[in-house]
Write a protein that binds this DNA or RNA. Structure first.
Lengths: 159, 159
DNA sequence: GTGGATGCAAAGAATTTGCAACCAA
DNA sequence: TTGGTTGCAAATTCTTTGCATCCAC
């Protein structure tokens, strides 16, 4: 996030993202319900990949069922509101992508911290895939590693 | 695979890969058992990402339990004999990587066909991640799309 | 009013674990 | 001989589904 942005500006920004996502819901013929709003807010405030389970925990005070979270996230993914990310252990996370630039992650395999890489050098390769006859091309790129903190606490770990 | 290679040469090549993997097992203090040999052979003959379930199906005539496949694949992954790949739906596949060049995949989201991309333009970025303080850095890059065949049968699908 | 969305519970799939028997080194 | 490995079954975890009720439009 932009470090020069004040708290209010960030919140205002979040509101705009919410509106944009709601518009996408409507446009695709979906209804705007309480659980969906709550899930969207959780996704937006996370500002990064988040587990289904964690989304549910955050919205559960509003009494939203876990099955509903799964169903909504599935719908959001189809519409293009979220995208699925992967942890090296095979578990899935979901990230809010409305109004954001395409980017990738560095994931600490030890503490699971997630950092963002703003550049994407891979976009150009999608054309190559397109030229092989593929349509609706997308890609997924994640970096894994042990972050500085974890490397220190794990002591004399080499690289 | 090299198209100029005869069937015998391919089989000889597979044997060499098996030997190499067995050596890695021994070197890391693991035992070379019947189920492990069978699983390695299944992985090698697949020449691409394969599901746990499919590995089990192939070796089940040798009476290898599904739990054993999971345990062995877990061990193989730690040793560096296989690596985990992801399907866009979140399911995991495993690919034999001993003696092979680093590469990536194009996965058809419709028929699940997997093609290989030999080049990797991302390796250089690992240094960038390393410079951010990460150790044991690796990465995962997959392309998704609808292949030519599937796009045709799905008719007037746009891109 | 009506059809899509939800909650609840139950089913289903994927993966892990405990433990006695087994077998590679 | 001995400890790592396996098979079997049970336990967990993750995800989906059926159905009556509900509510957004």
């Amino acid at each position: 996030m932009n470090p020069l942005m004040s708290k209010e500006e960030i919140n205002r920004d979040d509101d705009r993202l919410l509106e944009e996502a709601v518009a996408m819901l409507k446009k695709s013929g979906h209804r705007v319900t309480q659980p969906r709003i709550a899930i969207l807010k959780a996704l937006i405030s996370e500002k990064g990949p988040i587990k289904i389970e964690d989304i549910h925990r955050r919205v559960s005070d509003r009494n939203c069922d876990l099955a509903t979270v799964y169903r909504c996230i599935g719908a959001f993914e189809k519409i293009g509101i979220v995208r699925r990310c992967f942890f090296p252990d095979g578990s899935s996370l979901f990230e809010f992508i409305v109004g954001g630039d395409h980017h990738h992650h560095i994931i600490c395999t030890s503490c699971r911290k997630v950092e963002t890489i703003d550049v994407c050098v891979v976009d150009g390769l999608e054309r190559l895939v397109h030229n092989r006859g593929y349509r609706n091309v997308s890609h997924m790129l994640e970096f894994f590693g042990v972050c500085e903190n974890c490397a220190q606490s794990e002591d004399g770990k080499t690289d």
